[in-house]
């Protein structure tokens, strides 16, 4: 494992920690899209099915279990915690699951490396992860006064994707058989979705103002 991959994973892990910190410390999930969180849970469950039949490393297994467990925990807070659930912007979080899940499923059935149940689900998870941030980005556009923890959460997620791309470039030149065009294209699409966000994020940071995305 190279340093870029590790930094990407740590950024991903940190993003989850920031989100859990926000929810637990402020007892609020204001500005957080439950749709995005549930899509991520679906991404993790479909991708990490291989926990049951393929072992890569202890590091990988621990991270997979951690991502599934934290995703479930976040959803439980947002849906069932008496205090937290009252802060959920339900009326604003209107993105339809079907618009994202259905095309990803069709694409995974058509474009995959092997037509097996687990491989199609894995491919589906790659496509779905690429677009799962969309409900969160839409919600942030609608929300005035995005708080710092929410902004940092999304920034860390974007950093994770960017670092994975650097990791792929590194692996492309150091591992002769490393060719994963399907993952790369999805990853580039996913990272591109953050471009707009990062433009306004750095601008707000430079001017020391609150992040606000133009509608």
């Amino acid at each position: 494992m190279n340093l870029f991959r590790l930094a990407g994973d740590m950024s991903h892990l940190l993003s989850v920690c920031v989100l859990l910190l926000k929810i637990r410390a402020t007892k609020s999930c204001r500005g957080i899209s439950l749709k995005t969180q549930e899509l991520y849970a679906l991404v993790f469950v479909t991708r990490y099915l291989d926990l049951f039949y393929s072992y890569i490393s202890l590091y990988n297994s621990i991270m997979k279990v951690t991502f599934i467990a934290t995703a479930v925990s976040i959803i439980r807070y947002m849906r069932f915690d008496k205090v937290v659930k009252q802060t959920y912007d339900k009326e604003q979080d209107t993105f339809r699951y079907a618009f994202l899940v259905a095309p990803c499923l069709v694409l995974a059935l058509v474009l995959n490396h092997r037509f097996t149940f687990t491989e199609v689900l894995w491919t589906f998870s790659i496509y779905l992860e690429a677009v799962a941030i969309l409900p969160q980005l839409v919600l942030m556009q609608r929300t005035q006064n995005i708080d710092n923890l929410t902004a940092n959460y999304v920034a860390l997620l974007g950093a994770y994707r960017g670092l994975y791309i650097v990791n792929w470039i590194y692996r492309y030149f150091t591992e002769p058989h490393y060719r994963q065009w399907l993952v790369w294209i999805s990853g580039v699409v996913q990272t591109a979705l953050y471009a707009d966000f990062f433009y306004f994020y750095t601008k707000a940071w430079k001017h020391n103002t609150r992040l606000q995305l133009p509608a």
Binding site: R5, D9, H12, R47, D50, S54, I56, N60, M63, K64, F67, H113, R114, E119, W122, Y164, N167, H177, R179, Q180, V183
Partner: peptide, 10 residues
Amino acid sequence: GGKKEEHDEL
């Protein structure tokens, strides 16, 4: 490709 894809990333 013919090579089995190894999913070693997260």
